[in-house]
């Protein structure tokens, strides 16, 4: 039934076009074959419908689709926080908790994990006891200085950013195992890997070419 309607419409259109052509004695006899930029079809050397090619305006770039809702699956501020202090069954939850709610949700379990890693922990090089230290770490955001040196730790400045070259593992190990002056448990306060295996650029994009 629909097919009949469709055919009828086409027939009507063609009939009317023929009528136009036949009734117009002044044209050049080529109305049906003329290529224009507003005829609603892709013809001539057009690259799209009525666009592109030698005669028409360029075709618009196809609009990109950025729609939809995006749901959080992973989160990271400081290096190794979830890896070291997250407990089995809580690591996924940590990744889908917003930082403003992390402290209340995870500080006590972080403290338990710290004491399990180093039962001798009293305080560390920053002078932080177990509760204060894990309170700082549980809210997983990286501090970044507005001005001046940015570094995880460079011997003077501490926790003002993170450079590609920073030995964040040794910093973490010292703060966990090194005691108040960093000298305790010396076999656990450095992994003796002090630099990356590729050289970074001093210019954008800074990270090194892939292997």
């Amino acid at each position: 039934m629909k097919t009949y309607k469709y055919i009828t419409i086409i027939v009507v259109i063609f009939t009317s076009l023929l009528f136009v052509q036949c009734s117009d004695d002044d044209d050049n006899g080529n109305v049906l074959g003329e290529v224009t930029c507003d005829d609603g079809i892709k013809n001539g050397d057009e690259t799209g419908i009525d666009c592109g090619g030698s005669a028409c305006e360029p075709c618009a770039v196809e609009a990109l689709d950025f729609s939809g809702n995006f749901q959080q699956e992973d989160q990271m501020g400081r290096p190794g926080i979830n890896t070291v202090f997250g407990t089995t069954g809580m690591k996924d939850a940590f990744n889908v908790t917003i930082p403003s709610e992390m402290g209340a949700a995870f500080q006590s379990s972080f403290e338990s994990n710290l004491m399990a890693l180093n039962p001798d922990y009293t305080t560390n090089l920053l002078g932080l006891d177990a509760t204060v230290f894990t309170t700082v770490l549980a809210s997983d955001a990286l501090w970044v200085a507005e001005t001046g040196v940015t570094t995880y730790y460079n011997g003077t400045e501490v926790l003002t950013g993170r450079n590609l070259t920073d030995d964040v593992i040794d910093v973490s190990l010292i703060l966990i195992f090194g005691g108040p002056d960093g000298s305790e448990k010396p076999t656990l306060t450095s992994d003796f890997v002090s630099s990356n295996d590729a050289t970074f650029s001093t210019s954008f994009p800074y990270v090194a070419s892939p292997f």
Partner: peptide, 14 residues
Amino acid sequence: ARLYNAWVEAKRKQ
């Protein structure tokens, strides 16, 4: 000290 709190998140289209 004037410090930004910065972190990164990865979110998947539903």
